[in-house]
Design a protein around this nucleic acid. Structure first.
Length: 277
DNA sequence: CATCAGGCGAGAC
DNA sequence: GTCTCGCCTGAT
């Protein structure tokens, strides 16, 4: 168990921001995550984050995964002070970080995310992992399922994928898994490309459109100039940026700002639901 | 019962 | 190129 001090890190916000579907709360200020084939528990008390792992594992795996070396406060400080909406959104979600997630896992996860809600996305992914992922056990004895390999999903029967509650996305996963497992699309090549080239390549996958491709670019390839446009963001752009979002001003930070805008709108929607009850 | 959830592909034009 | 339409499924 090691403690890291960090400002602008909120395990809760990372968990709720909908970029990582395999991180969840598991008690008071406690969270668990399966990523990089590993199981991690963390706890947070204000600026102290307790990682339940060795020093070495933190430095070789989690420091990069959670993007700990990036100064998000500085990015937020670069927001135009006259943009009160963006300033409020960034302040609200200042603990979010753009994770460095697995490319293959993000492709499948965001295929599932389309026209879907976060609760059901998690359920679908968990079912896939339990059915097709390898069962493992952490150092402290917690059993978990790793994310399925390209081979395991490529070899899955379409009807069995439907049985995981994936709906019409089943055929996208079936086809995309086969494209990747067969080598028709070489994932390793994407790492050498810039944002535009990587996106163009991802769009060749059946079921991957502009929005899903942007999510993969941002959350796996860490192309922070990618700016995924979903229903929330489109609503925000329409209401707050009728003249268009100032991409020229924010450049490579646009994708990070997108996350603040997305999370702010998502949470406000949830608050409305709660107040109705 | 309709509508919506972090859209996409297919077909019409 | 742009537009419309249908689509699995569960929650409200």
């Amino acid at each position: 168990m090691i403690t890291i001090q960090s400002k602008n890190f909120s395990a809760l916000q990372i968990c709720m921001s909908g970029q990582c579907f395999r991180m969840e709360a598991c008690g008071e200020n406690r969270y668990r995550l399966v990523a990089k084939g590993k199981y991690l528990e963390l706890a947070q008390q204000e600026e102290d984050i307790l990682f339940d792992c060795t020093q070495e594992e933190y430095h070789t795996v989690w420091k990069d995964y959670f993007d700990m070396e990036t100064d998000y406060a500085q990015i937020i400080a670069g927001i135009d002070a006259e943009d009160t909406y963006l300033s409020a959104a960034a302040d609200y979600g200042k603990g979010i970080r753009i994770l460095h997630q697995d490319l293959w896992e993000m492709i499948i996860s965001f295929l599932i995310s389309q026209q879907n809600n976060i609760k059901r996305i998690r359920k679908c992914i968990n079912q896939l992992c339990e059915k097709y992922g390898e069962k493992r056990e952490s150092a402290n004895g917690v059993s978990y399922y790793d994310f399925p390999t390209p081979q395991s999903l490529a070899e899955a029967q379409l009807e069995d994928l439907y049985a995981c509650g994936l709906g019409y996305r089943s055929k996208y996963i079936h086809a995309t898994a086969n494209s990747i497992y067969s080598g028709e699309l070489d994932l390793s090549a994407l790492w050498t490309m810039n944002y535009a080239a990587a996106k163009k390549e991802l769009l060749k996958l059946y079921g991957v459109g502009t929005k899903v491709a942007d999510c993969i670019c941002l959350f796996a390839l860490h192309k922070t100039d990618a700016f995924p446009r979903d229903t929330h963001i489109n609503k925000v752009l329409e209401l707050q940026y009728p003249e268009g979002f100032p991409f020229e001003k924010y450049g490579k930070n646009s994708g990070i700002l997108q996350q603040y805008l997305f999370y702010y709108d998502l949470e406000k929607g949830d608050l409305k639901k709660i107040s109705k009850k």
